[in-house]
């Protein structure tokens, strides 16, 4: 059997990472500062009011967006977090998730729109998304640490990389799903591509886009434990410490707090996406 020559793909990636770290330090520093700044400030903001005050505020918000049951859940669940002494870690995780999701959606939405309107973009983007979603997280956590150092920032970066694909995919899907005749109706009256996008396609794709946002947030949350390993702290950090000490109880508490955040964020975003479809329910 003739042996295939070994393609040194790994070496190439290594040298690429080296090159990037040496040559683009300035660039990474700027990004790093911006991310640290936003996560830090959001965290400060969330920690500004006493835990129970914020809990009540969140419960009221829950009531407004969904109803009494959800409000009650929010009240009890967040009180539980506080009583487990995980409040600060939870708020840290929450801000990390929110910043990462926000950026993921902010990038994913236009990419998804571009992919929906252009076949070439769509074909080019798809394998990249597959890559982002299936590459084991540790593999890009490590270069993230090279670029951004230890701390919250590589956590945010790897979280947003991991959670972005559904934003792109579902935006593209949502826009492509809009009835072609309806788009034609827009065009037939002389609408510009931009008018059609903003007044027809995006509003009609909104339920699907919101489902994408929901998934982004869920994926982001699932990434926090891993981000904890690179020192992003928060609940991920708590879980990581618990694991290394084989402390099952602490690990469970941290995990439970993650689940509570997940349920809360999921219900909020799905309520938002229901609102986006309200007109359809009137049929």
């Amino acid at each position: 059997m003739p042996e295939l020559p070994r393609i040194p793909l790994g070496d190439w990636v290594d040298s690429l990472v080296d090159w990037l770290t040496t040559n683009l330090t300035g660039f990474f520093e700027v990004i790093s500062d911006m991310l640290a700044w936003s996560v830090g400030h959001l965290e400060d903001l969330l920690l500004l009011p006493p835990a129970l005050v914020l809990t009540v505020l969140l419960a009221l918000f829950a009531w407004w967006i969904r109803g009494r049951g959800f409000a009650l859940f929010t009240l009890l669940a967040f009180a539980l977090i506080e009583s487990m002494n995980l409040w600060e870690r939870s708020m840290s995780t929450l801000s990390l998730v929110l910043v990462a999701s926000f950026i993921a959606v902010a990038i994913g939405l236009p990419v998804g729109i571009a992919a929906a309107r252009n076949e070439t973009v769509s074909t080019a983007v798809r394998p990249v998304l597959d890559f982002m979603q299936t590459m084991p997280a540790f593999v890009y956590l490590i270069p993230a640490i090279f670029f951004f150092g230890i701390g919250q920032v590589p956590g945010v970066v790897s979280t947003l990389v991991f959670s972005m694909p559904p934003a792109v995919r579902l935006t593209e899907l949502g826009i492509r799903q809009v009835d072609e005749e309806v788009v034609e109706a827009g065009e037939a009256f002389g609408a510009t591509p931009r008018q059609i996008l903003t007044k027809v396609q995006i509003p009609l794709a909104l339920p699907t886009i919101m489902a994408g946002v929901n998934q982004v947030i869920m994926l982001a949350l699932s990434m926090v434990v891993i981000a904890g390993i690179v020192g992003a702290g928060g609940l991920g950090g708590a879980v990581f410490i618990a694991i290394t000490r084989l402390n099952v109880g602490l690990g469970f508490e941290g995990g439970l707090a993650v689940v509570i955040l997940a349920i809360f964020l999921d219900r909020v975003t799905s309520a938002l996406s229901d609102r986006a479809t309200l007109y359809e329910q009137t049929e």
């Binding site: 309806v182 034609e184 109706a185 827009g186």
Partner: peptide, 14 residues
């Protein structure tokens, strides 16, 4: 100058 009416109405549901 030209407007159009569609088979499946193609109204904007939103």
């Amino acid at each position: 100058k030209i407007s159009m009416v569609f088979q499946h109405f193609a109204l904007f549901p939103h």
